[in-house]
Design a protein around this nucleic acid. Sequence first.
DNA 1: TTTTGGATGTCGTAC
DNA 2: GTACGACGTCCAAAA
Lengths: 231, 231
Amino acid sequence: MRLVIARCTVDYTGRLNAHLALATRLLVLKADGSVLVHSDALSYKPLNWMSPPCSLVVEEPEADAADVGVIEQWRVTHAKSGDSLLVQIYELIHDSSHELGIDPGLVKSGVEADLQRLLAEQVEVIGEGLSLVRREFPTAIGPVDLLLRNPDGGTIAVEVKRRGDIDGVEQLTRYLELLGRDPHLAPVTGVFAAQEIKPQAKVLATDRGIRCVTLDYEEMKGIESGAPRLF
Amino acid sequence: MRLVIARCTVDYTGRLNAHLALATRLLVLKADGSVLVHSDALSYKPLNWMSPPCSLVVEEPEADAADVGVIEQWRVTHAKSGDSLLVQIYELIHDSSHELGIDPGLVKSGVEADLQRLLAEQVEVIGEGLSLVRREFPTAIGPVDLLLRNPDGGTIAVEVKRRGDIDGVEQLTRYLELLGRDPHLAPVTGVFAAQEIKPQAKVLATDRGIRCVTLDYEEMKGIESGAPRLF
DNA sequence: TTTTGGATGTCGTAC
DNA sequence: GTACGACGTCCAAAA
């Protein structure tokens, strides 16, 4: 990994055109050829970048560029899309290279898949007496997260999200429409389960007769890992 | 901006939990207090990060951490959400600070707003004889991108997207439902216009009687900027 | 290889 | 401040 601090301009041409006026920025050149341009604010997202696979070529600045002070010029081109990034350097302030090796990678827990797995093991969170038919129940328009059997008759389709948005309600609505046509399953009702449900999503769901359930990941995690309580 | 290359572990606790095992990484500390953790691959997205507003505190490593080789420990805490990042440093390989100043920011062109503007000027792309009623036609649930008048009677609502996804079809469906109730506009038909339309979106749109139109940005740009061709 | 859907999405903007 | 849609979304798993 090469780290460069430089006064530079950057131009991107590809899915859109973007220009960065002359200023001092951090340029990160990664081992896979990718390039990041960062300013001293706005975490996370680079101002400009090029994703691998791409190649960096050091070009000779054009005469008029050199006249206005460009001392070095990089062209980074994406191998497939042809998108390219032109970095024109006016002043090199820092330049160092470092051997990092391969990263063992990030280990996560608490994402949608975890929620779904926990909820499948704890269907009582949805309601009394329900039983799991299966996770990822397949339909023509995609898998339903959880399908439950109601002992009083009928089926419950559960859509699990980390954050419950209007899109999730739409998705569940499509599933309900389709599943409701199946005489083996009908009547099918819907449950929208998420750690956090947006007000508009709640309104839309309620309007469509879909019940909303707010999930507590930490609590569900506790029930899973902890020994059953003694009372 | 402070740049640190270090052998470290990183743990994030917040919306989820995430752990990075011991390895050499780039740590970027920005002027606004935010922190980025990057490996030597996977451009764009940091392995781990903390967004502003947040504060960094250098803690004394616990005895057992010090025993396994932790020489320095940072805790970065988000001011509002309480999310936190724990960086345990085992070896400092590089450490430098740089004054970057404020970035003038990115200038873009060629996004959805351009597509919509161009299409408003070239409604013949949608169909013969149509005329523009207005852009951003207001409704109770948000503005319709383009509203067109059909000389044969009725109205056409156009949803413009750069990439046509199933969400866009849902959005347009909601508009059509609402607009169709207005006797001044009815009958209202829909057109889904995008540079690229996903197969599932096309299927859903067609199923709902919505016509799909694929837009060619470069061609539309050419018609706008170029002189009319001489034949 | 293309497609699909999640994401600690992030980021801007209208309300 | 909240809600909502765009994003050069990025990214990984599935088909």
